[in-house]
């Protein structure tokens, strides 16, 4: 077994390579970001559904809205509490972004943190940057 050293070296290299993401990010851990709400969103108190539900399910809702609007011309959403909403991501004041007009603070923060890159803004036009 004169290949022993080679095998062990190979294994070590493989192991280091495999765990590279952990080494690379060592000491860079950042706290889980909290999305910021605009004043308008704060005043509304609740999104189309309760906050906790939105946190977990917003992508499903967006998906259903998308298919509903694009494929079936359904544009009105009636929430579980019976409230009516205009189904739109970025068109008008009563759209998602009409309320959450702070994309960087509201969407990007968490998406960046979790390395999620939805392609919404390749086509949908971002709300203009917040004036300070």
């Amino acid at each position: 077994m004169n290949d022993k050293n080679i095998i062990i070296t190979g294994l070590i290299i493989f192991f280091v390579f495999l765990t590279f993401p952990f080494w690379y990010n060592l000491g860079k851990a950042s706290p889980v970001p909290e999305p910021k709400l605009t004043d308008k969103a704060k005043a509304a108190k609740e999104c189309v559904e309760p906050k906790e539900y939105m946190k977990v399910e917003h992508m499903q809702i967006l998906d259903i809205w998308r298919d509903g609007v694009v494929r079936e011309a359904n544009r009105v959403y009636i929430s579980k509490k019976g409230k009516r909403f205009n189904m739109s991501l970025s068109t008008g004041d009563d759209s998602c972004m009409g309320c959450h007009s702070n994309k960087a603070e509201f969407c990007d923060k968490c998406h960046d943190y979790t390395s999620v890159t939805p392609y919404c803004w390749d086509c949908h036009i971002e709300p203009p940057k917040e004036k300070k």
Binding site: E49, I64, W65, G68, E72, A73, N74, R75, V76, Y77, I78, S79, K80, K81, G82, M87
Partner: peptide, 8 residues
């Protein structure tokens, strides 16, 4: 109510 979607 369950959530529902309708046309305008």
């Amino acid at each position: 109510h369950g959530p529902e979607i309708f046309p305008n």
